[in-house]
């Protein structure tokens, strides 16, 4: 564990609390893509199957895994059941098969071992890299977002961004160890946030509303 990784994970936790806070206080999931949230459930469930195989890493690791699975399912419950009327599927139109197909194929080709768990692990890594696309696509379509939603995205982006210095740090402190699948997918994932962060820094953090140029 290093500081980059710890702050990254805390930022990931924060993003989930921000999202829950947004939904609970506004009693609405307006502006949130349920497709992205469903993809996160799939990401966590397929990646954390090792919870049940006895490959114990640490208490921290297991508690976080359980939290991510539980909270992502709870968010789906809020969006699909409790605040269902505030969920507008007509603007959440990214086609999931464009994400699920290619990531499944990639996982079958590029994995560390052709076993059930390793293929699902690789799939979850590729899937997480692009899971934010329906949300960003929705933002692009509506051209604006509530400030709290942008804080949610910023926290997620910080989490991803900080994993990169974490890997660089680990490379030098752990004798040249790298995880090429996680690193390549992680860099792609972080790159997807670049446009968002440009608007976040130049508008939201200056006290303006998040609005994309027409």
């Amino acid at each position: 564990m290093n500081l980059f990784r710890l702050v990254a994970d805390l930022s990931h936790l924060a993003s989930i609390f921000i999202l829950l806070h947004k939904i609970q206080t506004t009693r609405s999931c307006r502006g949130i893509s349920i497709k992205t949230q469903l993809l996160y459930v799939l990401v966590f469930v397929t990646r954390y199957l090792d919870l049940f195989t006895g490959d114990f890493v640490s208490i921290y690791n297991s508690v976080m895994k359980l939290f991510f699975i539980g909270s992502s399912c709870y968010i789906i419950y809020l969006m699909r059941i409790k605040y269902k009327p505030t969920n507008d599927p007509s603007i959440d139109t990214f086609r999931l098969e464009y994400i699920l197909g290619p990531t499944a194929v990639l996982a079958l080709i590029f994995n560390y071992k052709f076993t059930f768990l390793e293929v699902l692990w690789a799939f979850s890594i590729y899937l997480e890299a692009v899971a934010i696309l329906p949300q960003l696509f929705m933002l692009q379509r509506t051209g604006e977002a509530e400030t709290i939603t942008t804080h949610y995205l910023a926290a997620l982006g910080i989490y991803r961004g900080l994993y990169i210095p974490n890997w660089i740090y680990r490379y030098f402190t752990e004798g040249g160890a790298i995880d090429p699948i996680a690193v390549v997918a992680g860099i792609v994932q972080t790159a997807l946030y670049v446009d968002f962060f440009y608007v976040y820094f130049t508008k939201v953090l200056q006290g303006q509303k998040f609005e994309l140029p027409a």
Partner: peptide, 10 residues
């Protein structure tokens, strides 16, 4: 030498 790959990240 590259270390054995392990999934210790979240």
């Amino acid at each position: 030498k590259q270390k054995e790959h392990e999934h210790d990240e979240l």
